[in-house]
């Protein structure tokens, strides 16, 4: 049952807190995101800076970087994903507990960046796993990562726990396993996961 926004504010002024289970649940989740501790390239330096005293990600409840995917629910892909590293990244994503979120940080993670033409760089991690927030930049400034994180918090806040639009972790039928690519002769096999990244059709 939804409470009228105005009535809620009015009650709040009188010192009465009206909330829903969903709001409470999302409030808790949004303010205690545990990112996974791993960095891939130069962007990771900016990620580290974000967690340190000057930018202080702890203000948003995400200072506990976990060294194990079992305890993490946010994966920050901070840097170049080489084809050598891609299977490991996808496997780690698979090993994270539900619900899980992904921030692709920097030009490399979202598209291959400066190395897009390289034979050994994955052209965007969203070919294999669903990305929630993309941050452009090379590297993005710590403020940009904070902005991405706040965007993610908004996204978590807006998730409904029931109905058609519910997040994948509450959806029995949603995809749970994301196939880990193998090293092929010339490229990773498969070269993308069509379930999360439909191959764009080039019209010439």
């Amino acid at each position: 049952m939804a409470v009228d926004e105005k009535l809620k504010i009015e009650l709040g002024k009188q010192g009465i807190l009206v909330t829903t289970l969903q709001e409470l649940y999302n409030w808790g989740r949004r303010n205690s995101v545990w990112p996974m501790q791993f960095g891939l390239a130069c962007c990771a330096i900016e990620m580290i800076a974000t967690t340190m005293a000057r930018y202080d990600m702890a203000r948003f409840g995400a200072e506990v970087f976990r060294p194990s995917p079992r305890q993490a629910d946010l994966m920050i892909i901070s840097g170049t994903v080489t084809k050598k590293m891609a299977p490991q990244v996808v496997r780690l994503y698979n090993q994270m507990a539900e619900p899980k979120y992904v921030i692709a940080m920097g030009a490399c993670a979202i598209s291959g960046g400066p190395f897009k033409q390289g034979y050994n760089v994955l052209k965007g991690i969203d070919r294999y796993i669903p990305v929630d927030v993309h941050i452009p930049g090379c590297p993005p400034r710590p403020e940009a990562l904070l902005q991405a994180f706040i965007t993610l918090q908004k996204k978590i806040d807006d998730q409904r726990l029931t109905g058609e639009q519910r997040p994948p972790h509450l959806d029995e039928k949603a995809q749970g396993e994301f196939p880990v690519p193998k090293y092929g002769e010339h490229d990773l096999e498969p070269s993308s996961n069509p379930g999360v990244w439909p191959v764009p059709i080039t019209i010439r």
């Binding site: 539900e98 619900p99 509450l170 749970g176 396993e177």
Partner: peptide, 9 residues
């Protein structure tokens, strides 16, 4: 808990 176990996980 929204468990989605699979072999990789």
């Amino acid at each position: 808990s929204p468990a989605k176990p699979n072999a990789t996980k």
